[in-house]
Every structure is written in structure tokens, then in C-alpha cells.
């Protein structure tokens, strides 16, 4: 199958007084349309890895390719890059500006790309409904809804510019078990509908086995194994 992401020999060290290498020679690829799980204990380097992949953190050495184009090339045109890749964060409430309504947050990416207000609003409403929320929730503030609802809104926001790759950084771990299942079901149906490639970072091995095609196990910044 065709690789959509290729990571080769990635190393990362946090500088400062307590300098520490957190990623050692990370090499893996992600195939188009697959769900790749990334598992590991807290502090194993999972979040650092995804932050690097999405351009929010720098790395020391190695290479990252998206569709055979280096990350650095993509980052010269961030608007274009973030149409390709989006992310859902661990804590849904913290991932929304507390002073902005969902309407503002969901339409922000489209406004940045010159989409008209009416069109942006229509797409945001459609996605809210597709993610199981009433369109009227667009007028709400993040603190006015539950954690599960907020995560649904976060998924809607991530999908608003139709990315090819979705990174879920422990997107279910801040939610209770029932809501976790609903969110995973939602992600599964969206993945199928939109033919998304998903990087699913998670602690829960059962969930990884259920949802992912393959999984990488990271321990102490080293890939310990890739499991199908």
C-alpha cells in the first residue's frame, strides 16, 4: 500500500538543565487509509512524536515525509499543510478558547481560507449534526457542554477542512467509559465515510486492538515493536 507518512531515524532531545533524549531513532510509516495505533506509557514520547509530526514541536535529526514531501517543505505553507492533517486533543475543554463560541472555533479554519461566512456556517452546522450534536450548539461556549459533547465538537472542528490524516492524541482518555465508546464509534464511522488515515494514540490496549489496523509500541522513546 501507498505510504502517506514516513518517519525515518527521528531523534529528539529536550534541552535545558535537565536535558533528556525522549525519542531514539524512530522509524515507521503510515499507510493511506489505515488506522495506526501508537501505544506507550505516560512519558514514553507519544505526545512528543505527534507534536513533531504536526509541526508543533521541533526535532533534532531524522526525516519526516508526508506524501514524499518533507515536513519542512510543508511547513513553509502551513495553510496547505493543515488542510492535509488535523488533530484531536486529549482534553476537549482545553482545546477550545474559553471566550469563543463553537461557531467561532469551527469556522476559524474556513475563514482563514477565505470561505464565505454563510458557507462556513453551513459546513460547521452540517458537521456538528454529523458528529451527533444539534446545530444550535454552535452558539454555545465550551464550558456550557459536557466533556463528550465538547469532544464531538472538537472532532467536527478537525474535519471542517476535510483533512486526509487525523491524529487523535488520547482523544478518549479524558472521557468516561460510555462516552469513550460513543466517540470511538463516531471516529470509526467518520474514518470509513471520509477514507481518513488515522493515528490513534492511546493507553488502552483493548481499544487499540479493537480500533486499529496496526499499532506501534513506544517505551522510553524507542519503538519496541509494530503489531498488526
Amino acid at each position: 500500500m501507498e505510504s502517506i507518512i514516513r518517519v525515518e531515524g527521528l531523534n529528539k532531545t529536550y534541552s535545558g538543565k535537565n536535558a533528556k533524549q525522549v525519542l531514539y531513532d524512530i522509524t515507521f510509516d503510515v499507510e493511506k487509509g489505515e488506522v495506526l495505533g501508537i501505544a506507550g506509557e505516560s512519558g514514553s514520547g507519544k505526545s512528543t512524536l505527534v507534536n513533531i509530526l504536526i509541526g508543533l514541536a521541533e526535532y533534532d535529526s531524522g526525516s519526516i515525509f508526508f506524501e514524499d514531501k518533507k515536513l519542512e517543505e510543508w511547513m513553509k505553507k502551513p495553510l496547505e499543510f493543515y488542510e492535509k492533517i488535523q488533530m484531536i486533543f486529549q482534553n476537549p475543554l482545553e482545546s477550545f478558547d474559553p471566550g469563543k463560541t463553537f461557531e467561532y472555533s469551527l469556522t476559524e479554519a474556513m475563514r482563514n481560507r477565505g470561505v464565505s461566512k454563510t458557507e462556513a456556517l453551513q459546513r460547521a452546522s452540517d458537521l456538528m449534526v454529523a458528529c451527533g450534536l444539534p446545530a444550535e450548539y454552535l452558539k454555545k461556549y465550551p464550558h456550557e457542554v459536557s466533556g463528550g459533547e465538547c469532544q464531538r465538537a472538537a472532532i467536527a472542528r478537525a474535519l471542517v477542512i476535510k483533512p486526509d490524516i487525523l491524529i487523535c492524541d488520547e482523544a478518549t482518555s479524558a472521557l468516561d467509559v460510555t462516552v469513550q465508546k460513543q466517540i470511538v464509534d463516531l471516529l470509526r464511522s467518520i474514518k470509513t465515510e471520509q477514507d481518513l488515515t488515522v493515528l490513534f494514540i492511546c493507553h488502552d490496549m483493548d481499544l487499540l486492538e479493537e480500533f486499529c489496523d496496526r499499532a506501534i509500541l513506544i517505551d522510553g522513546g524507542i519503538i519496541k515493536g509494530i503489531y498488526s
Partner: peptide
């Protein structure tokens, strides 16, 4: 350092 600022960057801000 807030997550919503990271989310804003991903929106292309």
C-alpha cells in the same frame, strides 16, 4: 502553551 492556541495554529492562524 494552552491547547486552544495549538488548535488555532492547526486552523491555520
Amino acid at each position: 502553551e494552552m491547547t486552544y492556541v495549538k488548535a488555532a495554529k492547526l486552523s491555520g492562524d
